[in-house]
């Protein structure tokens, strides 16, 4: 039995374009309904601090607006969550990184970049993590189905539910 499963946990939803962080072992950070969006989960095994980002778009440079929420972009959310985790006592050398999502929800494709946004989100998240010297421990990405991603700060466990099936990442 894992540490988290012994505790009565409080689900903390991480909505579109949000980034949440906690070190409370009774919390579980949850990104519900990831379609083309990508969930980025980072946990520090020593500080036992966890963060989950719900990324919608790959790059802030492509935005037509400058004063909108920066955390919806992969290239802004990933560095921000690393900064915040380090501020909370975490260290990059101990970070365990897992990602999920990036599905292509519409199969028609071709008509618009919107149809291909999932794979571009995944690519950008991977690039940002690599640029910052972080390796992805495990991932469940692409495909055509939605996912719900949960991160348990108590033990760093990440689960992904998709098409009625729950698996540990």
């Amino acid at each position: 039995m894992t540490v988290a499963s012994k505790l009565k946990v409080t689900q903390i939803p991480v909505g579109l374009g949000e980034l949440k962080q906690t070190d409370n072992p009774k919390d579980v950070l949850v990104a519900y309904g990831l379609g083309s969006c990508v969930g980025v989960a980072i946990w520090d095994s020593n500080a036992r601090v966890a963060a989950l980002a719900h990324v919608i778009l790959p790059q802030s440079a492509a935005s037509s607006r400058r004063n909108d929420n920066p955390l919806k972009y992969a290239d802004r959310a990933v560095p921000a969550m690393i900064n915040e985790l380090e501020r909370a006592g975490g260290h990059k050398s101990r970070f365990i990184v897992r990602i999920a999502g990036g599905a292509q929800m519409l199969r028609a494709g071709g008509a618009s970049e919107i149809f291909n946004i999932g794979s571009r989100n995944v690519d950008q998240v991977r690039q940002e993590l690599a640029r910052l010297g972080l390796r992805i421990s495990s991932e469940d990405v692409l495909g055509h189905q939605g996912r719900t991603m949960s991160l348990y700060p108590a033990d760093g466990r990440v689960t992904v539910k998709s098409a009625g099936t729950l698996k540990e990442l």
Partner: peptide, 11 residues
């Protein structure tokens, strides 16, 4: 699921 379907519009 609703969240995933609506992610198309969210983007």
């Amino acid at each position: 699921i609703r969240g995933a379907a609506l992610s198309v519009t969210a983007a």
